[in-house]
Simulated scan of single mutants.
Amino acid sequence: MPQEKLLDTVMRKLDETRGTWPEISDRSGVPYQTLTKIACGIVRDPRVSTVQALLDYFASRPEQASAANSTRSTH
């Protein structure tokens, strides 16, 4: 089974957490405008450090991680 690309993971997580982007921006250190441009597809090739900061944020959220794991185990 192919592994999801990191940017695709970030895009999916941002879509799932629409409405909480200001908090994600604050806690991840990614500027809100940058986050919204990534989520909306305006920025198609963001910096690795930006993607990593968002991945680290989502990984640090236990409720996010457990939801993702339960989704994966059902496929």
Rank of each mutant, 00 (worst) to 15 (best):
I38A: 01
L35P: 01
A53G: 04
V30C: 08
L7I: 13
N69V: 12
R47Y: 09
A68S: 14
T9I: 09
M1G: 15
R18W: 10
P22D: 03
E4D: 07
M11Y: 04
G29K: 02
G29C: 09
N69P: 08
R47I: 01
V10P: 05
T74K: 12
S73E: 10
Q3D: 04
L55W: 05
E23Q: 12
Y32K: 07
W21K: 01
S28Y: 03
P22R: 08
E23G: 03
P46C: 03
T36K: 15
V43Q: 14
T20C: 12
E23L: 10
Y32R: 11
A59N: 14
T36R: 06
D26E: 13
S49H: 14
H75P: 14
A53L: 10
N69E: 13
T20Y: 14
S60I: 02
G41W: 04
G41Q: 06
T9D: 03
S28C: 06
L35F: 15
K5W: 14
M11L: 13
A68M: 07
Q33G: 13
T9N: 07
R44D: 12
Y32F: 13
P31N: 14
V48R: 13
T9P: 00
S28K: 02
S73H: 11
T34N: 05
A53T: 02
I42H: 08
V48C: 15
R44E: 10
S70R: 11
E16G: 08
V48Y: 14
Q3P: 07
D26C: 10
T71F: 13
Q64G: 10
